[in-house]
Design a protein around this nucleic acid. Sequence first.
DNA 1: CACAATTGAATTGCGCACAACTCAATCATG
DNA 2: CATGATTGAGTTGTGCGCAATTCAATTGTG
Lengths: 157, 157
Amino acid sequence: MTRPPTPDLTGLPDRELLKLDHQVCFSLQAASRAFGGVYREALRDLGLTYPQYLAMMVLWEHGPLPVKTIGDRLHLDSGTLSPLLKRLESAGLVRRERGPQDERSVTVHLTDSGAGLRERALPVPRSILRATGLSVQEVLDLQETLGRLTASLGRAG
Amino acid sequence: MTRPPTPDLTGLPDRELLKLDHQVCFSLQAASRAFGGVYREALRDLGLTYPQYLAMMVLWEHGPLPVKTIGDRLHLDSGTLSPLLKRLESAGLVRRERGPQDERSVTVHLTDSGAGLRERALPVPRSILRATGLSVQEVLDLQETLGRLTASLGRAG
DNA sequence: CACAATTGAATTGCGCACAACTCAATCATG
DNA sequence: CATGATTGAGTTGTGCGCAATTCAATTGTG
């Protein structure tokens, strides 16, 4: 019943492979959506969705940034970020300016309102972490595994 | 530098919590999206998206099922499933019938074309699992952790 | 039996993710 | 310096996920 650390996957029967890989991606998405639900509730008062919260966090941490840089950090392209930032802008949290040196680039600034929102967002991480029910070590292990997984999948795809 | 297995989370500073929880959900979504990319490529020839593939797998495994049952298995509601099944139907893979005993229920059947697609889908799981770069044991551990995580988050949200 | 509550599907609306494309600004090469 | 390639944003279209609503069918209760 013990398995070698790197078993010969090609030797496993198709239906076992099917179960394994199905459940990995499936349980990954299940966890991801469960997070979404918890964040949705935690961010409701702030009027932010989770992706919007991520964008705000990048700005809270690094100050004004070009759209391109935000996209690099969040692994999102302009097709996702442009409308998202537009919503943040119409919510009055953010302001966009064409860069003077490179007129293709648009730099995103926090407004006073956007900067002030940080205070109200501070308790969110704690409530989320507590909701996971995981120990810190489990969180670290999970991240390590997910990091390798994403890297492998990225190279493959 | 060593930590107890279940540390007192309330004792950690805010900014450390912030990093931890941020990266968990973030790396979860990153892995989930990386999977999406790999599946997208693997399923391109079949003309299926990953959620459509999941629905087909349920039908391949269990035969004709009511929409409700498919939704329970995939954790999807009718708002997501109805249009998805409609697309599968217009692709000729699936047929929908009102149940005679309960006229609210709609049972989804595979067409011959839909059943035949299973053959072409068989090599997909193997290529996906290989792309993960994880050992079988790591896959099992990951699933276990994700299962607990999802359960905790579900209870919390 | 009548009527209220519940259930199963579908629809609408919103936001995210991604592909494909447009367009202007910038860069690189000859 | 002129021209072709590349880059940064934005737009369009498709599909997923979720909330909220609608509607008919069914169930439960008095």
